[in-house]
């Protein structure tokens, strides 16, 4: 869980940085989209680097989901009888890890069908014109709702996930506790704010 989660987190940091290029206009954003396809050239053939990233991400997402399933099954088996007197346990981010993860998994499927393959894209999806595609998606109410809800779930997931990964890998100790929590919160906030800024910019007309 920890290793696969951290690899995805690394990818997300690169992803949010790339997304923010949308604020520099269609030329620069589309050129960035093109660069992703020729990344590593001339050593690598066109699209190769992109496909390597995609394959690694797919493997990591599957590993993360499988270990989450195994861990959850084990955890539910270890507490077969629930307490009669129930009270709220742990923080919101901690309690929503399982459902939040499922929401994020479904979101990734929609997100790929929307902006990678264009299958579910509203309006004419055009390969090589990511700027216009992004504007199209966030011009629909459901595109905004799905995206923003998923990004809030992402923030919560990262907030508990990053700190937990540090504990699993044995990096945490009493002195680093505050630093790790601060880092987890900062990452969660930067990722959520960065991703959400794009639909908000389209809605307010900053990006059109």
């Amino acid at each position: 869980m920890a290793v696969s989660g951290l690899i995805m987190l690394g990818y997300l940091v690169a992803h949010v940085a790339g997304n923010l290029k949308v604020f520099f206009g269609p030329e620069e954003f589309n050129a960035y989209g093109h660069w992703l396809r020729v990344m590593g050239a001339p050593v690598l053939h066109h699209h190769w680097a992109l496909w390597i990233v995609r394959i690694v991400l797919l493997a990591v997402v599957v590993a993360h989901a499988v270990s989450a399933y195994q861990l959850s099954r084990r955890d539910l088996k270890a507490r077969p009888t629930a307490y009669v007197h129930r009270r709220k346990r742990a923080s919101y981010a901690t309690r929503t890890m399982r459902w939040g993860g499922i929401i994020l998994g479904l979101f990734i499927v929609w997100h790929l069908l929307d902006l990678t393959t264009g299958t579910l894209h509203p309006g004419g999806f055009e390969e090589g014109k990511p700027y216009q595609n992004v504007v199209d998606t966030f011009s629909t109410w459901y595109g905004n709702v799905v995206y923003i809800v998923a990004m809030l779930a992402l923030g919560l997931h990262v907030r508990h996930g990053f700190w937990s990964a540090a504990q699993t890998l044995g990096v945490g100790n009493a002195r680093r506790e505050r630093l790790l929590k601060l880092l987890a919160n900062t990452l969660a906030l930067v990722l959520t704010a960065g991703f959400v800024s794009v639909p908000v910019a389209v809605m307010t007309g900053v990006v059109s």
């Binding site: 861990l71 084990r74 955890d75 539910l76 088996k77 270890a78 507490r79 346990r89 742990a90 901690t94 309690r95 890890m97 508990h160 700190w163 937990s164 540090a166 504990q167 699993t168 890998l169 044995g170 990096v171 945490g172 100790n173 009493a174 506790e177």
Partner: peptide, 30 residues
């Protein structure tokens, strides 16, 4: 058959002897 740890921190909150949560990270390190 004990469950796995998801770092909820409930254990350290309940512990009457105040064993701190970072002890789990220390065990993982070991």
């Amino acid at each position: 058959g004990f469950g796995g740890c998801t770092l909820t921190g409930e254990c350290a909150t309940a512990c009457p002897k105040g064993i701190p949560l970072p002890s789990i990270a220390a065990m993982n390190r070991e």
